[in-house]
Amino acid sequence: MILFVQTLGWIFRPPLQGREILKQMEEVGVRSFPVVVITAGFTGMVLALQSFTGFKRFGAETMVGTIVALSMTRELGPVLTGLMVSGRMGSAMAAELGTMRVTEQIDALYTLATNPIKYLIVPRFLATLIMLPILVIFADVIGILGGYLVSVQILGTNPTLYFRRTWDFLELIDLYSGLLKAVFFGMILATISCYQGFSTQGGAEGVGRATTKAVVLSSLTILIFNYFITAFLF
């Protein structure tokens, strides 16, 4: 929590570490892209199958498109992206910063008159904050396409009808609420993971512990916050 406040404080102090931010944006955004695509695609697909089974029982099969779109944008897009990026980047951040801590590289930064919060944490924080919503937009689109593919190709739904059901009931607030979640999740996972890495103690074993804690704590915090953000926007 203290780290979060310090990080916010350092964000607005020049010079901005442009080079580091870009490097982290590539790491968080571009390299996580395949993972997010596969997760979202298959989730959209399975969502179509499952909701079709349910809706068929009361003859509402045409609503599959709506339910896939709403679930993806409001809920599964941000939550699954948040969890996958926690697993991928949270662990990487904690392991990298943890190793830097135990090999005295963080001390070395101080001795070179460079604040490690500004140099190491702010770029990771900003990169996650910017890239997570972008990843969520891709996840939403790909999830909806996945649902479309299964519905049209396997379940034989009329393509035009599927898209009309998707567009007619989807509102901007659905998209916004998902993106708002993504921003929060990005802050949560970057802060927790960086904190765990930064406060690592005790050699290789400590780095392992920090990495595990980063992923577990980020994931749990994301799930808990997800409920409260949803309830707040309800």
Binding site: T103, E104, Q105, Y110, T111, A113
Partner: peptide, 16 residues
């Protein structure tokens, strides 16, 4: 103050 200092770390502490 740290700008007056340079430090050699035991294992180097180079940025890897």
């Amino acid at each position: 103050v740290r700008k007056k200092f340079g430090m050699l770390f035991q294992a180097g502490a180079l940025f890897d």
